[in-house]
Amino acid sequence: MRTRVFLLLLIAVAIVVFFATRWVNNDYVFFAGYTVLQFVVLSTAWNILGGYTGYVNFGSAAFFALGAYATVFLHKLYPLPIPLLIVVGGAVSGIVGLGMGYLTLRLRGAFFAIATLALAVVLQTLIVNWDYVGGSRGAYIIRPNEIALIGPYIQYLFLVMLALVVIALTVARGIERSRLGYGFATIRDDELAAEASGVPTLRLKLIATTLSGALMGMAGAPFPYYIGYLQPSSAFGLEYAVNSIAMPMIGGTTSWVGPLIGAILLGSLQQIATVTISSAVNLLIVGLLLVAFVIIAPNGIVGLVQGWIRRTK
């Protein structure tokens, strides 16, 4: 199985990344690295729906926040280990994705996009009005300082996110190489012709929304532990919605490599820039890059590189 080889390779890379970061031995690198990895998961998840099937999800922040608030909710009931919380967060977001898809995907593609855009506003309204999870005031999650075997808790969170990256990339690449990947591509290209070729388009679209939503929820589940104090405005932050679209668009949407490149480039850039310039300027740059790339380089950095290779050959 080539997917198995890929998975092993990815795990090897992840282990190297983890120990290299540990060798640097600076907490800030773990904090910044966590955010970049989180964006890798988010943009890969977005791309499974957006890049492969061509359906745009503007509500990444909502799916992410659902995962985060599932954790807050469970944390109040009974403290669970993070891997379990990830499963729950993924399930919640996946189900919401499925429901939204079921209601809107039988219609024109634009309706789904609009509905996801509105979803973020509505979920935020719900959370703000829900006192149990902190309402508009927010909720504190006390994070342990240390964890057995690994040491500092942030290193544990970093490792967890690294594992999610491995999962997300393996799923994305697995889809590309499978029957599902061909099916997704036909939906992106021409749904009528896809149906006529025997592709069950609605079912495939629902699979894509569910998978994509679930991965976003999984990325959000450890977030309360990372940030320590979760407010609706930080969980539903604009940067999630924008980055999870901008990163694949800038990296390239046709394969798993694009979102990875886009997330690492833009994510690191923002981590560096937040230290030097304000976060608003930061987001402005991302927005402008997004607009510029969709107009000038529709296939992103991957497309530019492919074009360059083709020309020099």
């Binding site: 591509a185 290209d189 896809a194």
Partner: peptide, 11 residues
Amino acid sequence: SFQLPRPFTTL
């Protein structure tokens, strides 16, 4: 087959 060909353009 369709009146106007509808190939999958990215495949």
